[in-house]
Design a protein around this nucleic acid. Structure first.
Length: 789
DNA sequence: GCCTTGAAGTTACCG
DNA sequence: ACCGGTAACTTCAAGGCG
């Protein structure tokens, strides 16, 4: 019988003759696309009996229910306690919700568990199968017309459960990027009104194609062409930018209007909404790269152009930029239409390039967490951590708690020390390696190791946290400890191995993405533990973690002081110390011996600047690299010109201590502003809406701008980034804000930009050197500051 | 009626 | 739909002063 070596890409299930079959869409080592069906698995859930209930009787009673295939009394552990529960196996997945509700009403039943885990995920977890890893299975090919409708090279039925094999390389995936342009004269395009005029596609095999409508703007034809193209190219991965919230929704709607069947999957179906708010396309991975961009916090305004520019796949200079509102005009104008086509092509090509760049990371995250590549980016960080934990729990025979709704609870967090303001020389930045994960591991913190106050226990058997006195069993290791130990040691091992590899080699990059994926999950675990929506949430767990964190950084600070090291600043797990190599070495040793945690020198600053404000500093390191943290420079909600000015000032100060130069520079910018020599784009202020417009109580500039957009027919909801400028006039700012698309440079209130953008960011830095507002605004200097230092 | 002050509302950052 | 700590802005109402 043939053995198939495969790499699962998408997983679902299907019912054949009343039997549920898990459907693994995969790529084989022979570069074939296959479906592996496994009908040997059934859904199940657990029933926790009430205290004193007779398990045998209860089991028999449950077994008699319609739809129950089998019951079994099993020993599991639940939040650290051994429990006997009844495993209820059902005939098929859609019977589970009713059965669990029925059983819940039995007087002897306390609760059910794990009844909300999707059938195909259940299969993956129980068989330790991860998407994007390699497996081998003995399977038989299914022949006949029924299987030929699938867009694959073969459909197989597994004769056994797949086994993982050691194989690393990502198979040769076929990627298709697409992007649509619509003909909309006003506001947000409306699929009921506005046809699609261009569908652009680009593939990883190098094909770029534009499907365009004729003069009648009848998009039926191009949608059909697009569908045909997808079917013929048969991609494994389809990518778009904002495609889950826009392109797919639009296409589905236009297809419906035009009575076109949008068959783009491998099964004869259309895109359909799925668990994490994304669109699912059976047999393929549909990935929205906007979800990837959400993780690129350096990119403030998440347009495709900005992301492409940031990732270096296509610079803004080499591409045509057309405002969304002008697309229809470009289409109508015969001389401009070629530019629009060029624009559409640039968009789809950059989308493809971003996908190629992001894919190795997406694959690593998917194979670590166990969600499919289309789900992994769409799922929020909390759910990614949770799926990782659920996999670990299964391996440890731990039951997964139900998701319950809890009101938000607060608890104290990290310590931030008062910075020593001014410019300092020779400062070392030190931080604890993975502080919260290390603390959780060290003190075995977790909901399953927690000992409640009423429980008596020998104090030698528990770790007791500072401030609150929460107690955690030293043994056995809890779920968090086990999961985090595994993550940290795996990451350490990978980073060790990377040292022996050529930077830039295929293997190096693969391992780098792997360690990054691990880092993301490990770093989010503490946050997960304090999230009231988490299955494994428990307030004392979060409280204890930060309490030990505070103790840790405070102790480290005291050790530094005892050694006579100046402490300039510190936040959560870091300290900025005077750089005295010998004392620093001693400091590292003492911290290690007193706390059992690693603190190490990360970077040495030739000069570093603090104001009185916490969480804000700027320094220049021994490599001449500028580091700017917290200041307006790194904030997306200041005009670009203000950010640029502040960065330049910091350069003057940190590189040459040139206060006079900085002052002259600011005056020059103010003059340029007054002469309107500064590009309009640099005056735009961006803010993100956090809720729908009706929910706002306050008046504020960005809200006004958003309301104007809404009036003009744009849909602006939570998450929308609003770009606005402040115009001249007499009222409050909120009355003078206008969306940047609808304001003229002439109307812009230059005084606002000088007084409320440039001056404040400049003084934030320069006032530490005695510079005043009038120094920046007038040509006269009251006192020379050259000798300030 | 004008000016100051502080609270409330809001956003985006740090680690 | 991951945490708390923090800076900073705009608006607005209350309080002080005359």
């Amino acid at each position: 019988m043939p053995e198939i070596i495969f790499w699962p890409l998408d997983v679902a299930y299907t019912i054949i003759d009343g039997v549920p079959y898990v459907e693994m869409w995969a790529i084989t080592d022979k570069n074939e696309r296959v479906i592996i069906l496994d009908g040997s698995f059934r859904p199940y859930f657990y029933v926790v009996p009430r205290e004193g209930a007779d398990l045998e009787t209860l089991q028999i009673k449950i077994r008699k229910l319609n739809g129950v295939k089998a019951t079994e009394i099993v020993e599991k552990s639940f939040l650290g306690k051994k429990v006997k529960v009844i495993k209820v196996t059902c005939l098929n997945p859609n019977l589970v919700p009713n059965l669990r509700d029925t059983v819940k009403k039995f007087p002897d039943v306390d609760m059910y568990l794990e009844a909300d885990i999707r059938f195909y995920m259940r299969y993956l977890i129980d068989n330790d199968i991860y998407p994007c890893r390699w497996y081998i299975v003995d399977a038989t090919q299914l022949k006949g017309p029924a299987w030929e409708k699938y867009k694959v090279d073969g459909v197989y039925i597994a004769n056994e459960r797949p086994r993982e094999i050691k194989k690393e390389a990502i198979p040769n995936v076929k990627i298709l990027a697409f992007d649509i342009e619509t003909y909309s004269k006003i506001g947000t395009p409306d699929p009921k009104r506005d046809p699609i005029i261009i569908i652009a596609v680009a593939t990883s095999d190098g094909d770029v194609k534009l499907f365009t409508v004729n003069e009648d703007k009848d998009d039926k034809k191009i949608i059909e062409e697009f569908v045909k193209y997808i079917q013929e190219y048969n991609p494994d991965i389809i990518v778009g930018y904002n495609s889950n919230r826009f392109d797919w929704i639009y296409l589905v709607e236009r297809a419906k209007i035009n009575k076109v069947r949008l068959i783009v999957d491998r099964k004869g179906g259309t895109p359909h909404p799925s668990v994490y708010g994304h669109q699912s396309i059976s047999g393929r991975a549909n990935i929205d790269l906007l979800d990837y961009a959400e993780g690129l916090y350096e990119v403030k305004v998440k347009t495709l152009k900005n992301v492409a520019e940031y990732l270096g796949v296509m610079s803004k200079k080499e591409r045509i930029i057309i405002p969304q509102s002008e697309i229809a005009d470009y289409w109508d104008d015969n001389t401009k239409r070629p530019l629009l086509l060029e624009y559409a092509k640039d968009d789809v090509v950059s989308t493809l390039k971003i996908a190629e760049l992001a894919l190795p990371f997406i694959v690593e995250l998917s194979r670590l967490v166990g969600l499919t590549p289309d789900q992994i980016l769409a799922a929020s960080v909390g759910f990614r951590v949770e799926w990782y934990l659920m996999r670990q729990a299964f391996k440890e025979n731990e039951l997964v708690p139900n998701r319950i709704e809890r009101a938000h609870e607060t608890y104290p967090g990290a310590l931030v020390f008062e910075p020593k303001k001014g410019l300092h020389k020779n400062v070392v930045y030190m931080d604890f390696a993975s502080m919260y994960p290390s603390i959780i591991i060290k003190y075995n913190i977790g909901p399953d190791t927690y000992v409640p106050p009423y429980e008596e226990i020998d104090r030698n058997e528990v770790w007791i946290c500072p401030e609150f006195g929460h107690r955690f069993r030293k043994e056995p290791p809890g779920l968090y400890k086990k999961a985090l130990s595994k993550l940290l040691s795996a990451r350490k091992e990978i980073r060790e191995k990377m040292k022996s590899l050529q930077e830039g080699s295929v293997e190096y990059k693969l391992l780098n993405n792997r360690q990054l994926a691990i880092k993301v999950i490990a770093n989010a675990t503490y946050g997960y533990a304090g999230w009231t929506g988490a299955r494994w949430y428990m307030k004392p767990v979060a409280e204890a973690t930060t309490a030990w964190g505070r103790q840790t950084i405070l102790t480290a600070k005291e050790i530094a002081e005892k050694l006579g090291l100046k402490v300039y600043y510190g936040d959560t797990d870091s300290l900025f110390l005077e750089y005295d190599p010998e004392k620093i070495k001693k400091f590292e040793e003492m911290v290690e011996s007193e706390l059992g945690l690693d603190i190490k020198a990360d970077r040495i600053f030739k000069a570093i600047f603090f104001t009185e404000a916490k969480k804000r500093y700027a320094g220049i390191d021994t490599n001449g690299l500028l580091e700017i943290t917290g200041f307006e420079v790194v904030r997306g909600d200041w005009a670009e010109i203000a950010r640029e000015v502040q960065e330049e000032i910091l350069r003057y100060i940190l590189e040459n201590e040139n206060v006079d130069g900085a002052i002259k520079y600011v005056r020059k910018v103010i003059k340029d502003l007054q002469e309107r020599k500064i590009p309009y784009d640099k005056l735009v202020i961006w803010k993100t809406l956090s809720k729908s417009l009706e929910e706002y109580k306050a008046r504020a500039p960005h809200i006004t701008a958003a309301r104007i957009l809404e009036e003009k027919g744009y849909h602006v909801g939570p998450g929308a980034q609003i770009g606005f400028v402040i115009t001249k006039g007499s009222g409050i700012l909120a009355e003078r804000a206008k969306p940047y698309q609808f304001a003229k440079y002439d109307e812009v209130d230059i005084d606002y930009y000088i007084n409320k953008q440039i001056i404040p960011v400049a003084l934030r830095i320069l006032s530490a050197f005695g510079v005043t507002e009038s120094d920046l605004k007038t040509e006269r200097r009251q006192v020379s500051l050259t000798d300030f230092f």
